[in-house]
Amino acid sequence: MSASWLIRRILLIAYTLLVVSLLVFGITQVLPADAAVMLLGENATPAALAAVRAKLGLGDPAWLQYWHWLAALLRGDFGMSMRTGQPVGPTMLVALSRSLLLAALALALMLVFAVPLGLAAALRRGKPIDLAAGIVSYLGVSLPEFVTATLLLLLLADRLHWLPATGYVPLTDNPVDGLRHLGLPVLTVSLVLIAHVSRMVRSETIDVLHSDYIRAARLKGLSPRRVLFGHAVRNALLPVITIVALDVGYLLGGIIVVEEIFAIPGIGRQLIVAIESRDLPAIQAGALIMAATYAIANFLADIAYALLDKRIRYD
């Protein structure tokens, strides 16, 4: 991993975000929303509307508006929410931090379950545990998260009363209660991930276990445990990193639905609220932040890959 590669990669991320910003701006331009009407309400006088339009520069050509918006972005200014009149940036970032907490917990839970499950299924190929893991996986992959969410809600909250059904309690207020409130959303999101990743771990492990170098390791007299953990697991998990990085994309999408169902004020819910109220600056900020999260996640995955596999060299 050379410095020049890192620099080029970071420039590429910046370029990607620039393209995304153009797309986002273009889409908000064609949305059927008049910012002046949004601000002043349906009953505003034409004179008042015209004054607001002039003040916001809504009469300017699109490229000039884009330029102003971009210049403000680069200063860290995402604009003012049309709905609340508050700055959009800080609101979105606080929401993002809640979503990231949810995503991180889901990823952690996924790793804790998916890797052992995949390994067990690979080692006991065709045995009951493999079949059971397979069925659970297919269910997890094929059920949309609003269905799993509802089922989990019915079971764990409504029937068993183990976890609270909805709501959000900041961890800083009450860590235990905060985690309990995150329980159902984390479970919902991670279930799909576990299903997906455990299948991947299984097939990769099966491939690796059939490789020549695993046979060579066995014929050196190493114990099955050493062969598995010293030689096979690392190679089997490498491709999983790529999948997890791609899953971050799913995670961002899935989180929107899950946050809505469980009433968590994360970035997804903020984005939905913004779209419902035609809050253009908030939509733009939310979409950009999500794109940036995705780009950075893939960047981190590339770095992790290079650190684990010495064959990979970025230069």
Binding site: Y213, A216, A217, N235, L238, L308, D309, K310
Partner: peptide, 10 residues
């Protein structure tokens, strides 16, 4: 085949 008989990541 020595190329495939050694673990590439060790």
């Amino acid at each position: 085949d020595p190329a495939t008989s050694l673990n590439p990541t060790l």
